[in-house]
Write a protein that binds this DNA or RNA. Structure first.
Lengths: 243, 243
DNA sequence: TCACATTTGTCCGTATGTATC
DNA sequence: AGATACATACGGACAAATGTG
């Protein structure tokens, strides 16, 4: 016998408003691109004040369900940025827990390997072309002596997309956000960008040839090299003031 | 050449307020349990109105950085619920994307296998005892003809904790939330609970004996059986109105 | 370039509900 | 029961942004 009594906690008004709107979005009644009424109009329709509406909109905005713009023709528009927003919050969560480099690397290895194996099975011509273009662009940057950090990180996002699994995409985005946060804490390093693009090229070759073992070996080597580099630099990972 | 121009977007006042408080929390200046000043006091200190403060607090509350209580002695208290909140938002994100059972199962397999392998290396006596107690309690429930869904789900959380990797813990929590959401859509099923606890017991045995191959085989069989059960029942996974 | 309308952003004053002492 | 301190909620007002004519 479980859950006979349901917890009685009276919802605050703005919570009621936000979950009503959220339900409409999840049910597909409101779709991305649809414009919500203005704050004042919403207030009248819900019979609540404008302040209440605003707090509800803040929640929906932070969750990525809507975006808000000021000015003439502005207002709230339904979006599908929930995934994007969430990865930012995940980063906060892991910062709060002061997650270390070892934990991050282990998780990254697992996720990226899973992605790679699915991508080998599922990648189509377009995926391959995008990955090749990514590597080519990165190599061009490197050749001109420029940093290729962002574009190298994007390689992994493209792989995730090729896996055709949106759960992977979400997890990978989180991992990538953590990674970018890590990169941001150190001075740009050309050698690591150079090594990364070379590794990516080799991994992509193995993927195209569907050589699973080689691809996994290369990926593991690549990720461990990156991790080792951070450890050598003694980066305080995911902490702000070194504590 | 990338990112020469940095996006200029003037922060709204409530965003400025919330990120200042958030930074204090992440830096450890404000710690869980600390009480924030009242909304009015905060407004005076930041030189902003109370509504602005309230919108900032809404953001922090949704993110899990604070909790707010009404009444005498109430107010905002610093918390560490970020991880907990985030998994709820992840669920929203995946609902929004209408993720299917196949994607869910693939991701679940990957994460849980990773967790199991780390747990085999890292679980200490206390972890083992907790897992054993979980299985024993579940078996007792089953024996008395009662459902053991919640406690069976908890088995996987305990495994995640034993992996000593908080990134895994977070991902596993997300997977578990999705799973519970799935279970909630169907009538309780005794057979699946019964099969699950048996699988858990076998997996735990293999874990204690550090028999990696057997543990992985058993886990895969267990998770695929669960997935198969849902597919047979033609559950509309992670969608609300069957579309 | 200059109003103008619309909508969000922000502030203030006030009243109510709620939980603790 | 009453006083207190706080969040919650409402309505009014003005500022700022933004597109239109």
């Amino acid at each position: 016998m479980r859950r006979v009594f349901v917890p009685v906690r009276s919802k605050r008004t703005f919570e009621e408003v936000s979950s009503q709107i959220k339900k409409l979005i999840l049910d597909g009644v409101l779709q991305p691109g649809d414009k919500l009424p203005s704050e004042g109009t919403l207030g009248k329709q819900f019979h609540v004040g404008r302040q209440t509406v605003r707090e509800a909109l803040r929640i929906l905005e932070l969750s990525g369900f809507i975006s808000v713009q000021k000015g003439f023709g502005g207002g709230s528009v339904v979006r599908n940025n929930v995934l994007k927003r969430t990865s930012g919050l995940l980063l906060d969560a892991l910062q709060m827990e002061k997650v270390g480099l070892k934990e991050f690397t282990a998780a990254r290895l697992l996720i990226e390997k899973g992605i790679l194996n699915e991508a080998i099975d599922r990648a189509d011509g377009r995926d391959i072309r995008d990955l090749q273009r990514n590597v080519a662009e990165s190599k061009a940057l490197i050749k001109r002596g420029k940093f290729a950090t962002d574009i190298n990180v994007e390689f992994h996002s493209l792989l995730a997309r090729a896996s055709r699994n949106r759960v992977y995409v979400l997890f990978e985005r989180t991992i990538n956000d953590m990674h970018l946060d890590l990169r941001r804490r150190r001075s740009p390093n050309f050698a690591i960008d150079q090594a990364a693009v070379q590794a990516h090229e080799e991994i992509l070759d193995a993927l195209i040839e569907k050589d699973r073992d080689r691809a996994n070996r290369l990926l593991e080597k690549h990720l461990l090299a990156v991790s080792k580099h951070y450890r050598r630099r003694e980066i305080n990972f995911l902490t702000r003031n070194g504590c």
